[in-house]
Amino acid sequence: MSAAFEALIKRYDYHPVIPAERQYGQPLIVDLTPESEIWQKVSDGHDYAQEIKRQAAELQATVEVGRYAEERLIYQETDNFVGQEARTLHIGIDLGIPAGNPVYAPLEGCVLGFGNDPTQGSYGPSVVLRHELEGQVFHTLYGHLSVRSLAALSVGQEIGRGEAFAAIGSPDENGGWPPHLHFQLIRDMQGHTADYVGVVDPQYAEFYLDNCPDPNWILNMSL
């Protein structure tokens, strides 16, 4: 990891990417690793998403946080991961809040690309913003949005700091997931525009964790 890039990103003050009272309120830090105790509380009538909601209500959490650089096995039964079952390392941060909540740009930028992958287990609607700080170009990705989020967007469109440019999607439009924002920091898009892989094979962890460093450098949450 470039220490200079980390220092640059951490030097700036960013607008919250979800409503401030949720982003900076009480988080429920969710552990979805295979060893997590959450799986002991899952049954045929009570899945992991329901257990997360139960824990969030008990804690009075304002946001459910899915961790960066966490190994998970929740993707392997979805259509999006057929033939790619080795992809288990999550390289973004998930912010679980109700559908319809706004998504804000943390800093000024422009729309690099956007799209909608309806495959089960995918991002559903996603947007990538391109940013530049002191000559350093990087990107932020927003996955699991509402379909309506894409209607007013165009490639190259300028997005201001704090502008509400999208909204959280519901399960019937966001790839089939409980409502949440997948937020990812990406240095080199490697030719991609509308999306970028958010879960990778751990054997490539060194490259991907360097190219997609901790999004909390921007979120600045107490995790």
Rank of each mutant, 00 (worst) to 15 (best):
P98Q: 05
Y204E: 13
G124N: 10
Y123V: 10
I9D: 07
P171Y: 06
L32G: 00
A61K: 08
S2M: 03
V155P: 06
N174Q: 03
T140H: 08
L223D: 11
D201C: 01
H15K: 12
P215R: 02
M1K: 05
S170D: 13
Q60A: 15
V82W: 08
D13V: 13
G115M: 03
Q120C: 14
Y68N: 11
H139W: 05
E134L: 07
I97D: 01
A86N: 13
G124M: 07
A61F: 09
H139D: 07
G25W: 09
A164L: 00
A167N: 07
S122Q: 06
N216L: 05
D47C: 05
L73Q: 15
D31Q: 01
G156K: 02
G156H: 02
I186R: 11
L89D: 04
H90E: 09
V30M: 08
I18Y: 01
P202I: 05
R130Q: 12
Q76G: 12
I29S: 00
L32W: 03
W39C: 01
G113C: 07
D201K: 04
E71W: 05
P106S: 09
H15Q: 15
L28I: 02
N216K: 10
R187K: 15
V127Y: 01
L150S: 02
D201R: 04
A61W: 08
D201W: 06
P118R: 02
V82G: 00
D13T: 13
Y208M: 03
H15G: 02
N220D: 15
G169H: 01
G156A: 04
T33H: 00
G175C: 02
